[in-house]
Design a protein around this nucleic acid. Sequence first.
DNA 1: AATGAATGAGTTTTCATTCAT
DNA 2: AATGAATGAAAACTCATTCAT
Lengths: 239, 239, 239, 239
Amino acid sequence: MSTRPGRAAGRARHNEGVTTTSANSGRSTARAGGTGAGRRRTKGSPALASERREHLVRLAAELFAKKGFQATTVRNIAEEAGILSGSLYHHFDSKESIVDEILSGYFDELTASSRAVVERGGEPREVLSALVRICFDALEPHRAAVTVLQNDWNYLRDMPRFGYLGKAENEVEQLWLAEIERGRQAGIFRADINARLTYRMIRDTIGVTVRWFQPGGSFDAGDLADHYLKVLFDGICVH
Amino acid sequence: MSTRPGRAAGRARHNEGVTTTSANSGRSTARAGGTGAGRRRTKGSPALASERREHLVRLAAELFAKKGFQATTVRNIAEEAGILSGSLYHHFDSKESIVDEILSGYFDELTASSRAVVERGGEPREVLSALVRICFDALEPHRAAVTVLQNDWNYLRDMPRFGYLGKAENEVEQLWLAEIERGRQAGIFRADINARLTYRMIRDTIGVTVRWFQPGGSFDAGDLADHYLKVLFDGICVH
Amino acid sequence: MSTRPGRAAGRARHNEGVTTTSANSGRSTARAGGTGAGRRRTKGSPALASERREHLVRLAAELFAKKGFQATTVRNIAEEAGILSGSLYHHFDSKESIVDEILSGYFDELTASSRAVVERGGEPREVLSALVRICFDALEPHRAAVTVLQNDWNYLRDMPRFGYLGKAENEVEQLWLAEIERGRQAGIFRADINARLTYRMIRDTIGVTVRWFQPGGSFDAGDLADHYLKVLFDGICVH
Amino acid sequence: MSTRPGRAAGRARHNEGVTTTSANSGRSTARAGGTGAGRRRTKGSPALASERREHLVRLAAELFAKKGFQATTVRNIAEEAGILSGSLYHHFDSKESIVDEILSGYFDELTASSRAVVERGGEPREVLSALVRICFDALEPHRAAVTVLQNDWNYLRDMPRFGYLGKAENEVEQLWLAEIERGRQAGIFRADINARLTYRMIRDTIGVTVRWFQPGGSFDAGDLADHYLKVLFDGICVH
DNA sequence: AATGAATGAGTTTTCATTCAT
DNA sequence: AATGAATGAAAACTCATTCAT
């Protein structure tokens, strides 16, 4: 379902407005059609360096999800990886750039999938279902990102570097609003509901799920989506 | 609707399992093994807490809501009050005890109101409506508490001091579950919805509202409740 | 045995070299042959004010003995008395002046008693016994002073205010040394012991006793003295 | 005489019951749930601790001895080392863990030597002499530990972390008591002395010596021991 | 004689980050 | 690619003391 774009094609890094003093400011992944001479530090294959990096990001993601971004120290991450905290700076610019990588990965996928679903078109109820399912489906692969967004949004939103988060959110919102509106015009959705309110309600409800959702527990993300769509479309009352 | 108990009558502070070495842990100064007779600070007013203290709690609450508990420094709070950070410790034991005061105030009220509503009885749909409205109504007076719970729950839940939060949450959950079940038995609520899932969905959705809800904006808490109950009971689809 | 001089006649206060900014610098007890107009703050009888003050000193002494001077806060003392810390400053200049009162009381008595015993004269062995017993006997009434001297001597000795402690110690030491010497000349004490080393050994041993000595326990101060004198004079070996 | 075990072989650190969150609690960096293989910091040298670390401990020990544990600030230590106070935390968890290192080093050695001496057996008088000499001999290499124990015992004894101090003291006491008893049975030591009282007297007297004993002064630790044993065994009186 | 509020200088500790090796 | 040592700025908290009321 997800049209997951390759990393190179996706939105690159998002360090707008950030002064980068060190040499290692951006991602060190290969850039498509790179113009400058990409920093190559790794002697072996670039793929290996990238693997190490991705591994570190995954470790960090887990910690961010478990303890929150602020409460996770660079030392925590390094310990988890079995190295010293200073050594992390060989791979990343800063703690922020790690979380950036995590969040942008999530948003790249979310916006791309959402756009694709809407472009494909179909019954508003089906499209809306698909949008909802995209969010639920992200709960497992992007658990950390969603969690950080839930818990540390307050902290991150004020940082210029993460301005893109708001923009991406907006783009997704517009897609939803249009679809809800379309359903209303078509007489499928009730006229007396407020589209924005409804959107917020749905998105928030899904996001906040990470706080108690256990992958591998009694429900999987699909069950959650089924249940939620049922209530969303028809309410909890018997008709 | 809410039987809102006065602060003085409600459950006081919740520092179970916390050794308090300093003098300012509770509202009335705790004394080690003093020989003198207990001092009553305020003779005239029934309020136990000093006005100054309450004022400081309010200032702190605003900051916690705006920036999060972790991101708010005691200096921030002190500056807001126009004093030095050390002076705050004349009134409070710790930063934690400030947030404790805020959170316990919220939970005292929430559990009391919820219990009262359930005990009064009535149609399940009406009782559930009332429970939902209690949560929405808390959004304004307890904005800070709800916000902190949203953003810093991950951080707070591991602290023994805040174990009571989980317990209070549980109590409320039980009230809701019983009511949903009752509605199902009565054939009012659909048999194919999961009570727990539904509960989490509703509570979370309301709580997360605090992230964008502006008191004094285009919607007030009542509008939100109306809209939400509409969707919750009957869904967004036309029947 | 102790010729305990009245407070008024004893060495007054010892704030040499301390700039006193507040009004209440010295003791407020009546001064013998006072020249200036003594500060009179108490409306009732001066004796009552003095009683309160003495009571506070006793409370402080207990705390100093239990937790050490440095580790005891002014707040601790005030709490014990059932007042607020600031209120203590109505009675005392500073924390230091409280401990000063405790220590000087001890030394006034110690030096006076020791002088008296030596002046009375007699067999060196008897005089030395009496000197030892003075120290043991002080263990109960001056427990706090002895304890503070043991634990906080390092801290206090550098303060000009407490320079008199060293002087008083010296005076006592001279009395002992002379007596030991006299006993040696008389052929009663061995010639091959070092007087100073012996003095230090005895005094220290007695002082350090406060660390485990429990008034009301299996031994009283007299038992300790008996035992110690036995070992001191004749050793632990069978002859 | 002392079987002085090397540091690396002795009982390491004693932070029983203390939750260590940071990385630097022990000598070898504790790691949370690291995946990588354990790192050995020093391959060549058998010493586990870094030289830098040991150097810092020595500096701290001197300051603790001079000013007392409480009165020595981490800033003092850092300044002595020519670094900033925060930098100390690269090497140590806390101020407490520094003093822990100092104290446990002393006790490891003391208990090991004492055990060895007792196990070797011999005349009670000789064994007791050896036990006394162990204590005197520790005065120079473990001056700081002994001093801290003298001055800050009151403060440290209440901390769970330092519970092992009491246990180690107890073990040593038992060794002494058994030896004194053996000497009594053998008719070498007087029957009318109390073993515990005698033990306390001796140990305390030696410990308190640190308050005036100057390594490099007119007496060395051996002289002190000689003199003390003379008095202890035969008393100061001529027989 | 005491309260209640505050000061100010200090404390220990945390932590992202830098950098020579 | 990593270590080991350090920085520096800030954090929470402590506490003797002051002072208007």
